[in-house]
């Protein structure tokens, strides 16, 4: 049971990292650099969340439906925010830097969700 969990944990980690890397690269290039600074973060977040949907649907057949959804949507939101904010920097980051930023956001989000999962599985549940 543990090996299966580890396998899917790694699958979620890879899927979220790859998805967030693409999301950040796309968001960073789409958000205009002359956009008002206050709008960069919400615009990036909205774009990141919208782009998460096709990534989630692509990961579904491999990893299940709800599990990658939570990881990729949360990761995509964070990656989009970070990429949106970075678009206002001078000079604007390149595609590779944006992809690396997104990959970092995705990996951290996935690890945080993995840790949350471990915490939430302790003891019995209730609502």
């Amino acid at each position: 049971m543990a090996s299966s969990r580890i396998r899917y944990f790694l699958g979620d980690l890879v899927a979220t990292t790859v998805a967030c890397s693409s999301i950040a690269a796309f968001t960073g290039t789409c958000v205009p650099s002359d956009c008002p600074p206050w709008a960069l973060m919400p615009l990036g977040m909205a774009l990141g969340m919208a782009l998460s949907i096709p990534c989630w649907l692509a990961a579904g057949p491999l990893l299940g439906m709800i599990e990658p959804m939570l990881q990729i949507m949360l990761g995509g939101m964070v990656a989009g925010m970070a990429a949106g904010m970075s678009a206002g920097h001078e000079p604007a980051p390149g595609l590779l830097a944006l992809a690396a930023l997104g990959a970092g956001c995705g990996a951290v989000t996935s690890l945080a969700i993995g840790a949350s999962d471990w915490i939430l599985r302790q003891g019995e549940a209730d609502e």
Partner: peptide
């Protein structure tokens, strides 16, 4: 879980498998 209780069942055990979602 709440609906199960509301329907008149006695909830004996709830095990979480993923993020308190599954």
């Amino acid at each position: 879980v709440r609906s199960v209780r509301q329907a008149g069942f006695e909830v004996r055990r709830v095990e979480r498998h993923y993020l308190d979602v599954l």
